[in-house]
Design a binder for these strands. Structure first.
Lengths: 131, 131
DNA sequence: TGAAACGTTCACATCAATGTGAAGGCAACT
DNA sequence: AGTTGCCTTCACATTGATGTGAACGTTTCA
């Protein structure tokens, strides 16, 4: 698919898709006339990038860990490609990610606890409780 | 304590502490000569702000949810203070936070799965495994 | 008293992510 | 052929979070 369709399917402006490519996060093919062409997996990949950016990771970090973030059933990188430095980087980032998770979970719980106190009877789950 | 000590104890530059105040996230007292004076709870509050900022929340969002993020044992806001709009905001933000958590957890797991495949024998936990 | 360490405000600079628009080529359909 | 819509690159602007420094008052301590 071309950039427009990818944009529509992900909700990410084309400007950003080009930016992510410039940042080495996406690597679309090109047709004869220079148009970018993306494969189907690009949709998930873009969503993944967006989620990580939204969670405070920088494009630089994402670029470095993205190659290792695929499903284990499609591990294409041979272990030889993993230098000790890279392993340390991955462990370090996993830890920083965990810290974010802890912080977010703490505050999510605090919000739910507050709502539970002032509005007993509304479950903390998906139901928005409009009615 | 004054701004310098708070900075030392949190690792956050004084510049940022002043900025957070400008953004209405901190509200220190002032001494006669204009010096900011922070209470002990400010330490935790600054760490909380940092964690949330680091996790992708903006100062604007933090400002709006911060009053509700304290321990339930010190709930000072009467339920009357909670308008339906505020409740909806809180639920919405809790959901956005949950999405971040899910995304981060997914990718943390992917990193651990990768490490487990290429380096069997190293636990995914805290031990950095330098030796 | 004078230096050192701290505080204040104000202002300008940077950096990453994103918005926006110009100028032009390509594709499809009427 | 012309119009409409998508694509290209280039470039400048904005926004939020930070860095940095000037100019100046305060506290502390030798």
């Amino acid at each position: 698919m071309r950039i427009g369709e990818l944009s529509r399917r992900t909700g990410v402006p084309t400007r950003m898709l080009r930016y992510y490519e410039e940042q080495d996060l996406l690597h679309p093919e090109r047709t004869g006339n220079g148009y970018r062409v993306y494969g189907e997996p690009a949709v998930y990949r873009v969503q993944q990038i967006r989620g990580l950016l939204d969670s405070g990771l920088t494009t630089e970090i994402i670029r470095r860990i993205l190659p290792f973030l695929n499903k284990p059933d499609e591990i294409h990188l041979h272990p030889e490609c993993l230098t000790p430095e890279t392993a340390a980087l991955l462990r370090g980032e996993a830890e920083r990610i965990q810290q974010r998770i802890d912080c977010l979970a703490r505050n999510r719980d605090a919000i739910h606890a507050y709502l539970a106190v002032v509005q007993p009877g509304a479950p903390p789950g998906p139901p928005t409780g409009q009615t």
